[in-house]
Computed example of a mutant assay.
Amino acid sequence: MATIYYTGCSLDGFIATPDHSLDWLMSRDIDGGADMGFDTFAPRVGACAMGASTWQWLLDHDPEGWTPKPTWVFTHRDFAESDQVRFTSADVAQVHAELVREAGDKDVWLVGGGDLVGQFHDAGLLDEVWVQYAPVTLGAGAPVLPRHVELSLDEVTRNRDFMCGRYTVVR
Rank of each mutant, 00 (worst) to 15 (best):
T3F: 12
R28I: 07
L25W: 12
T168F: 07
L138C: 14
L11I: 15
A52S: 15
E102C: 09
F87E: 06
W57M: 05
Q56W: 09
D39C: 13
F38A: 13
G165L: 04
S10R: 02
D19M: 07
T137G: 15
T7D: 00
S53R: 02
D107Q: 02
T54S: 07
M50Q: 00
T3H: 08
D127L: 09
H96V: 14
D115P: 02
E64M: 04
L99I: 07
D29Q: 12
A47Q: 01
T168L: 15
A16C: 06
R77G: 09
V136R: 08
Y5S: 03
S82F: 11
T67Q: 11
G139F: 02
V108I: 10
T137E: 14
D83L: 13
V131M: 12
F162V: 00
D127Y: 09
T40F: 11
P143R: 04
Y133K: 13
D78K: 11
T40W: 02
S82N: 14
P63W: 00
V100Q: 13
A52N: 00
H20V: 00
T3V: 14
Q119H: 14
W130D: 00
D23Q: 10
W109Q: 00
D107F: 07
D78Y: 09
W55C: 02
K69N: 07
G13A: 08
L126W: 08
F14E: 01
G46P: 09
G118F: 01
R44G: 13
G51P: 00
P70Q: 03
L59I: 06
L59R: 13
K69Y: 12
F162H: 03
A34I: 02
V156N: 03
V73G: 05
A123L: 12
G104Q: 05
R28V: 11
M1P: 15
S10M: 05
F14R: 05
L11E: 03
F79R: 07
E128C: 08
L11Y: 06
L126M: 12
G114R: 06
S53W: 01
H148G: 05
G118K: 06
A134T: 11
F38S: 06
W57D: 03
W57N: 07
P18C: 10
V156E: 04
V85M: 03
W57I: 08
M26A: 14
P70G: 06
S21E: 03
E150A: 15
A80N: 04
P70W: 05
T7N: 02
A34K: 03
K69L: 15
S21P: 04
D19C: 01
F41E: 04
V45W: 10
S152Q: 12
E155G: 09
D105N: 08
G32N: 08
F120T: 09
D29Y: 07
E102D: 11
S89M: 10
V45K: 05
D154L: 15
V92K: 12
A80H: 05
G165Y: 07
Q94C: 14
P146L: 01
R171I: 02
V149R: 10
Q56C: 05
A134P: 09
L116C: 03
G13S: 03
A97I: 13
E98W: 15
